[in-house]
Design a binder for these strands. Structure first.
Lengths: 193, 193
DNA sequence: GTCTATAAGATGATAGAC
DNA sequence: GTCTATCATCTTATAGAC
């Protein structure tokens, strides 16, 4: 919507608030207090709340995509790439006490502007595709069982990590996230020979 | 808070709205329109929105507990019990287009009254305990690998199903729920001999 | 770009009549 | 138990001055 630095600052704050309280859980006034600018000024950068949420969701999806590219190129093994993938979610949970932006938005899907919902769908598609690609690499490299269902496993990984973030932030049992993600990757790796 | 039939009717409607739009996504006025009673009358039965949410969450948790007892006694095998467990979630998703009440509330945890949050935590604990119990039975019955980590697997199942509900309702890809849950149970069942 | 002012409606909640 | 009336406040958004 706008590339100025103020627009960017608004998006950073909005992202944080959505991850913390959800689309229905923050207002332009909350933002204005946090940023030190009037809510009318936020409307200048983002005419409606939906416009702001679309901008935030798009930037999140694109930024995540870049991170995944780096992760893919930087990891020595598929196992390591998947571990680092899970670590991305864990870091958001542990250091920021936030959940995935699109996991939050997805839970509110019924009260979301259509354009925002579309962005979240695209986010999940991209995550699944990347995961499926990594799993395929893992099979070729002999790290994963040859009969692994990569599509189903990709969807499984995504659902599990999104669900774990939500539950763990709620219960406050921080160890549970790695418990769940380790257990998942152990099962996916198949029997040790 | 109240056992009258009107209070019950309010709770049914509130449950539906929370599962659909979340705690931050419904108001006493929405409820009043749906039920055909003024919002002031709802405040008579449930003084605050938090009181209503606590009542709904408690009833949900207790009702679910009873269902799990039936399920445990009614299933021939552990595999069958787990399949039926997943089917509970799938039915809510498919026939009602709703997600788990506590999954929804958990995602909003930061804007929840403390008493509501406590109920959701207790819900997750009970679910995990039941799942762990069923997994233990499965090991004893020889249906699951002897080295299965029941606690971690229980947490994994819960996280996965909660996450899958949220993502699948968002994307509209109904098949994905059974894809994910089948894949999970296949992995948990271990190698076929 | 940011502000003041303002609109029109929603929200959670209460007081008091019936 | 349910209603009307009312509240203080919040919400999304716009118009127009600086």
């Amino acid at each position: 919507m706008n590339t100025g630095s103020k627009a960017h600052e608004i998006m950073i704050a909005a992202k944080k608030m959505i991850q913390t309280s959800g689309y229905n859980g923050f207002s332009f006034r909350d933002l204005s207090r946090e940023i030190g600018i009037k809510s009318a000024s936020i409307h200048y950068h983002f005419p409606t709340k939906g416009d702001l949420a679309v901008a935030v969701a798009t930037a999140y999806r694109e930024g995540f995509s870049e991170t995944l590219l780096d992760l893919e190129n930087g990891a020595a093994t598929t196992q390591q790439a998947l571990q680092k993938y899970a670590a991305l979610f864990q870091k958001t949970l542990d250091t920021d006490q936030r959940i995935c932006l699109c996991g939050m938005l997805a839970s509110e899907t019924e009260s979301l502007p259509e354009k925002v919902r579309m962005e979240t769908i695209r986010f999940f598609e991209e995550q699944e595709q990347w995961l499926a690609k990594m799993l395929s690499k893992g099979i070729i490299a002999g790290e994963l069982p040859a009969d692994t269902n990569v599509t189903a496993s990709a969807k499984l990984i995504l659902s599990t990590l999104e669900g774990a973030m939500i539950i763990v932030r709620n219960t406050g049992r921080r160890n549970d996230f790695s418990t769940v993600s380790d257990q998942l990757f152990t099962l996916i790796s198949g029997p040790k020979i």
